[in-house]
């Protein structure tokens, strides 16, 4: 096949290229995640972690209320269940990028290809994100079967809420991944730290009204707050205790939409900036370690 001067010039990346990269990265991510030395252990880990997290809250609830106020228990369980997605996405994206930089030392080879790192990162971490959905389902099943959670699903509301919410969380995860890549310190535990901090200001396990007033703006600006609220309405048929529960379903969905629409470009721009910074500082093939 003759190579003309025009054909030899480099063409930009198309959507088809990005999709191919994304698909390939999914396969890679799954191959890594499913490389269990002991599937039983993996199953235990997948179940024990989310159930224990919910169990802590359930025991706290039981110790204080003796089982009174079941609505609050439902509030706790739904928030705890959904928080697995936040943790799964954060750790999935950040761990993927750090693993590829420090364990497999492949990220520099991905960066020098014509493909963008972004679809690679998304695809690579999808397996871990998928596992977090299993945790959500498991926690909800236990909640329904054993803890009296009364599900009243409204799929017309729940599905768009989930799509928007997970998209927002992924955007936050992308931001975190870029940030961790540009750090010189070991950052393996940072996604958990960030997820833990968001735990505080998202109304995950207590109503936002309980927070000190000074933190309310942060809580109301976070898309995770509106995602959790919308998801509760979509699953339980009613909102959270407190001021946020008084808003209409439409308002909650609209705010979720707007906050997601804002966080996506911010996260992408930040990721690009972090990548430039990492390239400038020579961090793409750096190995931390102490």
């Amino acid at each position: 096949m003759a190579v003309t001067g025009r054909a030899a010039s480099v063409r930009g990346m198309t959507l088809a290229d990005a999709w191919r990269t994304f698909r390939t990265a999914i396969k890679l991510g799954w191959a890594i995640e499913s490389n269990w030395s002991d599937p039983f252990l993996f199953a235990v880990y997948t179940m024990a972690k989310p159930l224990a997290a919910a169990g802590i809250l359930v025991v706290m609830f039981q110790v204080i209320t003796g089982g009174q106020n079941p609505e609050f228990l439902q509030f706790l369980i739904v928030g705890s269940a959904l928080w697995n997605i936040v943790f799964g996405v954060m750790s999935g994206l950040v761990q993927s990028i750090l693993e590829d930089r420090e364990r497999y030392r492949m990220i520099k080879y991905v960066v020098v290809t014509p493909t963008s790192l972004f679809p690679f990162l998304l695809g690579r971490s999808l397996a871990r994100v998928a596992v977090s959905f299993v945790a959500v389902v498991l926690t909800m099943v236990v909640g329904v079967l054993f803890l009296g959670v009364d599900l009243q699903p409204n799929l017309l509301y729940l599905v768009p809420a989930t799509v928007l919410g997970v998209t927002a969380v992924i955007a936050l995860g992308v931001f975190m991944a870029g940030w961790c890549l540009s750090l010189r310190q070991e950052a393996w535990s940072y996604p958990e730290a960030i997820a833990g901090a968001l735990y505080l200001v998202s109304g995950a396990i207590f109503p936002i009204d309980i927070l000190p007033t000074i933190l309310h703006p942060i809580a109301y600006l976070s898309p995770t707050t509106w995602w959790l609220e919308a998801s509760r309405r979509g699953l339980l048929g009613h909102g959270s205790p407190g001021a946020i529960g008084g808003l209409s379903d439409e308002v909650v969905m609209l705010i979720l939409l707007v906050s997601t629409a804002v966080v996506i470009p911010v996260a992408l721009a930040a990721f690009a900036w972090f990548m430039r910074r990492a390239r400038r500082a020579g961090l793409l093939d750096m190995i931390t370690g102490s």
Binding site: Q185, A187, Y190, L200, I205, F206
Partner: peptide, 29 residues
């Protein structure tokens, strides 16, 4: 040599602990 640990290893975990404090406050414990 990398002081970011003060934020990620001290401040943020403190916030996570605080979340459980507020759960008890919500439960009026």
């Amino acid at each position: 040599r990398e002081p970011s640990w003060l934020f990620f290893e001290i401040f943020l975990p403190f916030l996570a602990v605080s979340a459980f404090v507020f759960v008890y406050r919500a439960l009026e414990a």
